[in-house]
Nucleic acid binder design. Structure first.
Lengths: 131, 131
DNA sequence: TAACTGTACTAATTCGCATAGTACAGTGAA
DNA sequence: TTCACTGTACTATGCGAATTAGTACAGTTA
């Protein structure tokens, strides 16, 4: 289900958060759906249960999931709205990164083209920008 | 001269690298210009000399500056070209971030608008996206 | 000679991340 | 009730990156 890269600079618990957010945002998971149990997911992706719980707790604090002791962890009703708001707030990161690249000499046209590629899911040069 | 944010998740030595790169890219520093000495800068921005040296060493490895033992550290002749190449390579980061924001529900138009704001150095909503 | 420059070490500290283990309480079906 | 599941809480530990501290060496230049 989830793909964890232990070599990444991004902490495992953040990778879990990001991927669950993506699953919800893309419609792969809907409001009311139950997430994998803390212990079950820890076995599946070979990660300590504490790390899973840390991710779930943060998702709960973000209002994206709702944890019910004894029952499980479920996608909250207003998760899509929270995610969109979260994305809009993160536009500041895009702003800062674009500003930096532009200051380094990258043309505005290249920046816009990269946005188009990201939105369409394609790359113009085939260099594999995911990696 | 340099502004260090010790509360940032970005390591101090990376902040130093980024800001010196920006100074060169914007023309505030030119090829042949001498950088502050390791010890001098450490006193000025209240950072350990080893941290300064780590930044300088990395800038040297990137071909952006040239260190001369006994003389000092200078902006290399082909620094602008190296910076532009570095910026182009970093487009993959912009690609990944844009892809993620789009998956969270942020419209392509908002992404392009943010790029425009970053390039022009202005914000449409005045929320202070730098911060 | 003296004061600067970059460079090269070792040691210690701090902090975030992750793991390991144990324990407690709520839920729901057999 | 019993049992297996659920989330939650807590302590202890290990690890690695970042940073600081201190010392030392060699080249440059007035």
């Amino acid at each position: 289900m989830l793909q964890i890269d232990v070599l990444s600079r991004v902490p495992v618990y953040e990778q879990i958060i990001d991927q669950i957010e993506t699953l919800i945002a893309t419609g792969a998971m809907e409001a009311g759906d139950q997430l994998p149990s803390v212990r079950g997911l820890s076995v599946e992706i070979l990660v300590n249960p504490n790390t899973i719980q840390k991710a779930y707790t943060e998702l709960d604090n973000l209002g994206i999931v709702t944890s019910v002791p004894g029952r499980g962890c479920f996608v909250s009703q207003n998760a899509p709205e929270m995610l969109r708001r979260r994305g809009t707030e993160s536009l500041s990161e895009l702003y800062a990164l674009a500003k930096r690249l532009h200051s380094l000499g990258v043309r505005a046209e290249e920046l816009h083209q990269t946005i188009d590629e990201a939105v369409s899911g394609k790359t113009a040069d085939g260099t594999g920008k995911e990696g």
